[in-house]
Simulated scan of single mutants.
Amino acid sequence: MIEELKERLLENKTLATVLGTVFVMLLGFFVWSNVTRPKAEAQSELPALSTTFSASTTASFSKEKAASSQVASGRIFVDIKGAVKNEGVYELSNGSRVTDLVKKAGGFTEDADKKSVNLAEKLVDEAVVYVAKVGENVAQVTTPSQANNGIDQDTSSDQINLNTATLEQLQTISGIGAKRAQDIIDYRESNGGFSSIDDLKNVSGIGEKTLEKLKAEVTVD
């Protein structure tokens, strides 16, 4: 009886040991699978994230490059005056030439002196083009790229004619800046020109002292 009881206890102990071992193995496998699975999933997602980031970076770079290219090939604004059908400021693409501006202005008038302009000349932003009339004593159209500071080389040492000078030419007169030069042009257009140098006193900002300094540099002939 006692021997039989010992054998049963021994069998139960062995069974318990086996079951315990199996349980520990199952628990270890469960823990191991839960630890390694997130790592594997994270690694598998890395290429996709990398591809997405690369595509986004490339698209952003392309947009910046396109914007930079658009700025480089931007627009310019040029003022045309004189013997054209429609005087005014016109917007053109960068690299346009005087001939493009004349077309924008409706073409020459019948009394235009076509020799007074260089139709092949390239234009730059803020340039002023003056088309002379036949018989008008005006040098060839000036643009900033044609001569230093927009002055014709053959007239740079002569007196500036108040009745025909461009905005750039007027700014070469001592003490005359962009605003004062524009005031002179506005007065000239409003009053049909200057009849004498003394008429400069009628331009805002020019008094007796300034006039005396300018007389040696300007003319109305």
Rank of each mutant, 00 (worst) to 15 (best):
S145W: 05
E45S: 07
S196V: 03
D111Q: 03
S174W: 07
Q70L: 14
E91M: 14
S56P: 01
Q171Y: 06
E189K: 13
R37K: 15
K65S: 11
V134C: 00
A66N: 10
D111F: 02
S56Y: 08
P47G: 10
L46R: 11
G95Y: 01
I185F: 00
N12M: 09
A55S: 14
V35Y: 13
L200C: 01
T155F: 05
S195H: 01
A112N: 03
A147W: 09
I173Q: 04
D199C: 06
A112T: 03
S68T: 10
E4I: 11
L5A: 12
S33H: 11
L200Y: 05
T51D: 10
V131F: 04
K104V: 01
T172C: 09
A72C: 02
D186E: 10
G107M: 05
V129A: 07
K114C: 01
K104M: 11
P38Q: 14
Q140I: 15
Y187T: 04
V35D: 07
S73F: 12
K133D: 06
S60W: 03
A42T: 09
A139K: 09
K201G: 05
K215W: 08
R8L: 15
S73Y: 14
K215T: 09
S190L: 06
E212A: 15
S33E: 08
L27Y: 08
E217H: 02
A48Y: 05
T14E: 15
D111A: 03
Q70F: 14
K114I: 06
A127V: 03
A105Q: 07
V129L: 13
A165W: 11
K215V: 10
S73G: 07
D198A: 11
T57L: 13
N161V: 13
P38S: 11
I185P: 00
G177Q: 08
V102K: 00
V18L: 10
E110L: 02
F108D: 03
G95A: 04
V129T: 10
G175N: 07
I80H: 04
Q159G: 06
K209E: 13
E11W: 08
R75C: 02
A181T: 04
D79V: 12
G150I: 13
V128M: 02
N12R: 08
F61S: 15
D152K: 14
R188I: 01
Q182Y: 09
G28E: 06
A48N: 05
K122A: 14
V138Q: 12
S196C: 00
T155N: 03
K6H: 15
D154Q: 12
R37M: 12
A181Y: 07
S196W: 01
A67R: 14
G20A: 04
W32K: 02
N202M: 11
E217A: 04
L10T: 15
S116P: 06
E168C: 08
E217F: 00
V129C: 09
V78P: 08
N94D: 01
I197K: 06
V102W: 00
N34S: 07
S96N: 03
K85N: 11
I184G: 03
V129H: 07
I160V: 15
N12F: 04
L101E: 09
S93F: 03
L200W: 05
S96W: 03
G175A: 02
V71H: 07
D183V: 00
E91A: 12
L119K: 03
E212M: 05
Q153G: 14
V131P: 05
S195W: 00
P144Q: 08
T143E: 10
G74Y: 08
Y90K: 05
